[in-house]
Write a protein that binds this DNA or RNA. Structure first.
Lengths: 186, 186
DNA sequence: TGGTACATGTACCATATGGTACAGTAGGCC
DNA sequence: GGCCTACTGTACCATATGGTACATGTACCA
């Protein structure tokens, strides 16, 4: 398995293709054709089909983590965060994210700790921010967890129904009641 | 494609197997061996591999709908509903549900309206119940949508982290703040 | 008895699959 | 020049795949 820049290019192309076509259902040859290379090349650079899928998984996890840090300033206000995440331009990303998520649920070993990070990595910074705002740590932890679930649950809804209006109303309701409750206490 | 009781038995066995092993990643022969038949039989009864997966999808949707009606009385109190859904015995069901959900997101046509029901069918009865309790319809709709997202988001969390305690705390927080807000207004 | 409908087994087919063997090719470096 | 490393193309292999053809069994009804 190589590590050069040719590999990096292929990986980027593979992720890009996976956004549209998914990962699990395609053969090496189909993927190769879609991104303009040969299945031989994919095997050279990623060792095996599983190696490719693992690499794509890690890349998506990485970009997810990147999004986490990028959105640091948005955490202060929840609504802009939702407006950003619910944008249709991000749907392919989120679909792929859920696809990898569910795939990991089937076989924890195969996906190399994806599930260990997929929740916890998000909880900590959110909770830390809340603690910084004077919320007691245990309350903050529960709030972070609930907020993450609300966002992911509503994104699942949105991807299925495409009902941006309805899901946004539900999110606003969450902000109005839960976060208001939090402020009242904190 | 047959419709007899032999088919029904095979379908039940296939669903049962899918709970443990998933659907998409197995070949007809693997599924057949797992449930004690031949791939020839699966083709006879379900026409094709896609036919089998479609049948499994519909069966899961059906059982999901059944669960919806069964849980009618639980809706009055949210917490027992969560205790029921978060029980580890139901994890395989929920994993398979999310698997089919995500698979449907990839190809809406293939899954025969699954996505059209996966949210709406749940919103209506929940909202109706809230309206019956005196909540204005538009507020009730948003509350139903938020509640569904919370449950599904926390189930995703639970399936990944296995942290029943943490997710339950988050759910309790939701009940305490959102539903309290609702009562205050209603 | 024969027929008919559902069900099952055997054997096969064309094709696609992941993976390998091996022979290059291009470019930097000595 | 020769050497090495990174990369790519061709050709192949054993195997597994979804699907089909056809014969067989089995039960029930006439």
């Amino acid at each position: 398995m190589a590590t050069g820049q040719a590999r990096a290019k292929l990986l980027a192309a593979a992720v890009d293709d996976a956004l549209e076509a998914g990962i699990a259902d395609l053969s090496l040859r189909q993927i190769a054709e879609a991104i303009g290379t040969s299945h031989r090349m994919l095997l050279y650079h990623f060792g095996s089909r599983d190696g490719l899928l693992a690499a794509v998984t890690m890349a998506v996890e990485e970009s997810e983590r990147q999004r986490l840090f990028d959105s640091d300033e948005s955490f202060t206000n929840a609504r802009p965060l939702w407006d950003h995440l619910s944008d249709a331009a991000l749907w392919p990303q989120e679909r792929l994210f859920f696809e990898i998520y569910v795939r990991a649920l089937r076989d924890r070993n195969r996906s190399d700790g994806f599930l260990d990070h997929v929740v916890d990595d998000w909880l900590e910074p959110i909770a830390a921010r809340l603690v910084g705002a004077g919320i007691p740590p245990d309350v903050a932890a529960a709030h972070a967890r609930l907020g993450l679930a609300v966002v992911r649950g509503l994104l699942l809804d949105l991807l299925a129904t495409h009902d941006l209006e309805g899901t946004t109303r539900a999110f606003d309701l969450y902000v109005a009641s839960v976060i208001a409750t939090l402020r009242r206490r904190g």
